[in-house]
Computed example of a mutant assay.
Amino acid sequence: MSSYDEINDIFCGKIDGKNGYFANYAMNKGIFINIDKNGCPVSVFIDNASDILNVKKEILEESDIKIGIGCDGLSIYFDIFVNGVKIYNNEFKNTYGIPDLNFLLDSNY
């Protein structure tokens, strides 16, 4: 599920039913990924979301938002889709030891 606070321009996406996290990693300025004790992502937090993602605030209020996170030994691949259209993607160094995975946070589930 995801939520967007238009007043504070904060976007959050998390796996429904997961509470808390083991570690929080800053991918870059404003994008944070929270992981569980197994190293799997449980939530994403984006501060100043409309600026970082370069979209209008109204776009982030959409209900069909998916966040793709892929990791390998060297990189973390981060994508955001709204209504099936990729609005953001970036690649970060995997300096956190997040295991190899492909993960999709889906606001509809």
Score class of each variant (00 low, 15 high):
Asp36Tyr: 10
Ser63Arg: 13
Asn108Cys: 14
Leu74Asp: 13
Asn48Ile: 11
Ile80Glu: 01
Val55Arg: 04
Asp5Gly: 02
Lys56Asn: 12
Gly84Gln: 11
Asp106Lys: 01
Glu91His: 07
Asp5Ser: 01
Asp47Phe: 04
Ser43Gln: 02
Gly73Val: 08
Asn102Glu: 15
Asn54Arg: 05
Ile10Val: 05
Lys56Cys: 09
Asn34Gly: 02
Lys66Ile: 03
Ile65Thr: 09
Asn24Ser: 04
Phe103His: 11
Asn8Lys: 10
Asn28His: 11
Ile69Arg: 00
Cys12Glu: 13
Tyr4Ser: 01
Ile69Asp: 03
Asn48Asp: 15
Asn38Trp: 01
Gly97Glu: 10
Val85Gln: 09
Tyr21Trp: 09
Pro41Ser: 14
Asn90Gly: 12
Ile80Phe: 04
Leu74Phe: 15
Tyr77Glu: 15
Lys14Met: 11
Gly68Lys: 00
Ile7Glu: 09
Ile15Trp: 00
Tyr109Phe: 15
Asn28Trp: 09
Asp9Trp: 01
Glu58Trp: 11
Ile80Ala: 10
Ala23Trp: 08
Asn34Gln: 02
Gly68Ala: 00
Asn48Glu: 10
Ile69Met: 01
Ile10His: 00
Ile31Pro: 04
Pro41Val: 14
Asn94His: 04
Gly39Tyr: 02
Phe103Gly: 07
Ser43Met: 11
Lys29Asn: 13
Glu91Ile: 09
